[in-house]
Simulated assay, not measured.
Amino acid sequence: MTDETTTDPTPPDDATADVTERLGYRLKRAAAALRGAMDGALREYGLTVPQYACLELLDQRPGLSNAELARGTFVTRQSMNVVLRGLQDAGLITRAPTADHGRALPAHLTEDGHRRLAAARTAVYAIDQQMTDAVPPKRLAALLADLNRMAETLGG
């Protein structure tokens, strides 16, 4: 007995397969569309997507280190150094000049950082809601669970 809701995937070695029908392609396309929409919305607030993500994480968990922020925003530690420098230069975060222990320099939002995040969050959440609204409500929980399983399967 077969499940009619699934299809057999085209074998990866089939050179005639339409790559645009592959799950990975579709996920990347959706991610690129989300990134483009966020880039456009955040430009109005003088933020990049990694900067915004960093502000969100610091709002939820003040004092995160560079390495923790890099993992949480899906960028390298080197890229996070650039992100943090930009946020610090803009007066949106503070970091101690020296570490209390080890090499980690915990970061915290400034009042300006909280204000900028609150303004940008409205625009980003509207984009997220627009994307969410494209999924029938009765399928949303299953989709979110499927996405989590995919990430876990690949080690994410």
Rank of each mutant, 00 (worst) to 15 (best):
V82Y: 05
E68P: 00
A118E: 00
T10S: 14
T7D: 05
L55F: 05
G46H: 05
T153I: 13
A134K: 12
K28I: 07
T98P: 10
T98Q: 05
T16Q: 01
L34N: 04
L27D: 08
L154Q: 13
E21Y: 04
L92C: 11
T98H: 00
D13M: 04
D13I: 09
L92I: 01
T6L: 01
S79G: 10
A120K: 09
L144M: 10
L47N: 08
P62A: 08
P106L: 04
A134L: 14
A99G: 02
A90T: 07
Y25Q: 00
R103C: 06
I127Y: 03
Q60W: 07
A99D: 07
D146Y: 13
T6V: 14
K138W: 06
Q129I: 00
L47I: 02
A96C: 12
D112A: 14
L105Y: 08
T110I: 02
P11S: 12
G72C: 00
F74L: 12
L143D: 01
G155D: 02
A15D: 11
A53G: 13
A67M: 03
V135K: 07
A17I: 07
Q78A: 14
I93C: 01
T73C: 11
L23G: 01
A33S: 15
H114W: 04
A33W: 11
A99F: 02
R116M: 09
A30L: 15
R77P: 03
T76S: 15
R103E: 07
T20L: 12
H108A: 02
L47R: 05
R103P: 07
R22L: 06
T2A: 05
A142L: 05
K28W: 10
L140S: 07
T2V: 13
H114M: 05
D14W: 02
P136V: 09
A41C: 01
A99L: 05
P12E: 06
T132R: 15
G46Y: 03
A134N: 06
M38V: 08
A30W: 14
G72M: 13
R95M: 11
V82T: 13
L34Q: 13
T10E: 15
P62E: 05
